[in-house]
């Protein structure tokens, strides 16, 4: 079966994010960018399913600026077969992402869409569930295990306090949580091979999708700093502070 996987280009999670001095957004100029870690897990999952003979073709999609081609090449170096970039200039919010992806799904007819559970930049945690709703498909959000079983998939989801097991009909949308797998590293020969894999670039207008943002960001700021703390010499002093100063025990 054919699988569609999505990847988002984000600021590297190990980079300290800085707010622009005018409060309009965060600094992205000359900052290291990378594939969203949850998207990496999604790509890895598709590849493992292909290696297991469950999946025949992996199409990887990204939405964003021209440089997202690099993110797609990374996914192809990991093992995806071909890429599609829906090239946009401005901000694309989750509802618009879901609409663009629906248009791609309508064209490509995959039996399964695997996405990251959330992007680590806007932390929205919406696109996968929204895509499933627009398609009228079942979903498995925050997935930590998936086994395809004919026209259904047995999935395990991470929920507060434990795990949940579902059987969902295919086609479906699955979003990857941290423990679904550990993504592989790309090797140099595979990076070279990925350069020859097909990568199609299309515009959202060609898909007939309106991607105008619905939320207006009025300002961004750094959270209030905590007051500077006190170093205590030993457990005795700590106990005294907690009892008489902080009054929490």
């Amino acid at each position: 079966m054919k699988v569609l996987v999505t990847v988002k280009r984000v600021i590297d999670p190990y980079v300290k994010v800085r707010v622009k001095s005018d409060g309009s957004g965060v600094e992205t100029a000359n900052i290291k960018m990378t594939m969203n870690p949850f998207c990496e897990i999604a790509v890895e999952q598709a590849i493992r399913m292909k290696e297991a003979g469950v999946v025949s073709e992996i199409v990887v999609v990204s939405i964003g600026v021209q440089q997202c081609q690099e993110t797609l090449r990374t996914a192809m170096a990991m093992g995806a077969d071909r890429g599609i970039l829906v090239e946009t200039a401005g901000e694309v919010q989750p509802l618009a992402v879901a609409k663009v992806l629906k248009a791609i799904v309508d064209k490509e007819s995959p039996k399964l869409v695997i996405m990251g559970k959330q992007a680590i930049d806007d932390d929205c945690n919406q696109s996968g569930q929204m895509l499933a709703a627009l398609l009228g498909w079942p979903q498995s959000a925050f997935t930590s295990a998936i086994a395809v079983n004919g026209d259904a998939a047995d999935v395990t989801r991470e929920i507060d306090g434990g795990l949940e097991k579902l059987s969902i009909k295919l086609p479906a949308v699955v979003t990857a949580d941290l423990r679904l797998n550990e993504p592989r590293y790309v090797t140099l020969p595979n990076i070279m091979k990925a350069k020859k894999k097909p990568l199609e670039v299309i515009k959202p207008e060609a898909l007939g999708v309106d991607i105008a943002p619905r939320l207006v960001t009025l300002k961004v700021q750094e959270p209030p700093k905590r007051g500077s703390g006190v170093k205590v010499a030993d457990v005795k002093e700590l106990m005294a502070k907690l009892k008489t100063e902080a009054k929490v025990i």
């Binding site: 989750p94 929205c124 929204m130 499933a132 709703a133 979903q139 925050f142 939320l215």
Partner: peptide
């Protein structure tokens, strides 16, 4: 994990950005 799971489905079906 309860609200995050179903609310985006509600928003998308209403054509609303959550």
């Amino acid at each position: 994990s309860f609200g995050k799971n179903f609310m985006p489905r509600v928003a998308a079906a209403l054509d609303v950005q959550q």
